[in-house]
């Protein structure tokens, strides 16, 4: 959650399609939209807002690779080097037997690493629920568009009119 400062115009929409179609319209008219808050994911919203594609997949891959390497290192070192365990006269380092645990640890590292990355990149964590919000109905049935007046060159009236034209049912002003 980004730090909120300054004066905001908050457009309230009651339909996900209206808000999705409103975004390109407003951006074309020159309004800089900071963020849209919704009770469920709206497909295509992040592209419409011009957000860059999330890179969390790269992080997930790296964590997975770490898990895989850790698991193989642990097993090869303990079974083959530190205390070679020869069972049935076979090679102590037997890869086929190491596959299940390597797989499990890869999954474990990926899942936990990725979720931690998710929390950090969203600025989420215990205690962050005291952060101010634009409109509490954005987790129920309303779609909230936040426009930071500080980063917009247009006047408040112009933006309000554009919001109203794009289908906003309510326009509020929030000062942080």
């Amino acid at each position: 959650m980004a730090e909120l400062t300054g004066k905001y115009l908050v457009g309230v929409y009651d339909d996900d399609d209206t808000v999705l179609h409103a975004v390109p319209k407003l951006r074309k008219a020159g309004v800089k939209i900071e963020e849209v808050y919704s009770p469920f994911p709206i497909h295509g919203m992040d592209e419409a807002l011009g957000h860059p594609r999330t890179r969390i997949g790269i992080a997930a891959f790296m964590f997975g690779l770490t898990g895989c390497i850790c698991a193989l290192t642990l097993m090869c070192w303990t079974m083959g080097v530190d205390w070679p365990m020869i069972i049935g006269g076979k090679d102590p380092i037997s890869f086929p037997n190491f596959i299940p645990i390597t797989f499990e640890l890869t999954v474990l590292f990926t899942a936990f690493g990725m979720v931690t990355t998710f929390f950090i990149s969203n600025g989420m964590g215990p205690g962050t629920h005291f952060h101010p919000r634009f409109d509490l109905r954005s987790t129920d049935n309303k779609f909230i568009m936040a426009i930071n007046m500080g980063s917009n060159a247009m006047s408040e009236d112009e933006i309000s009119r554009a919001l109203r034209d794009s289908g906003a049912e309510e326009i509020n002003i929030k000062q942080f």
């Binding site: 957000h51 962050t128 629920h129």
Partner: peptide
């Protein structure tokens, strides 16, 4: 809820993970 705000950015990451 860890400070969930439902922003488009958060949702896109959420869907991805």
């Amino acid at each position: 809820a860890m400070g969930w705000d439902g922003s488009a950015k958060t949702w896109s990451r959420y869907e991805y993970i």
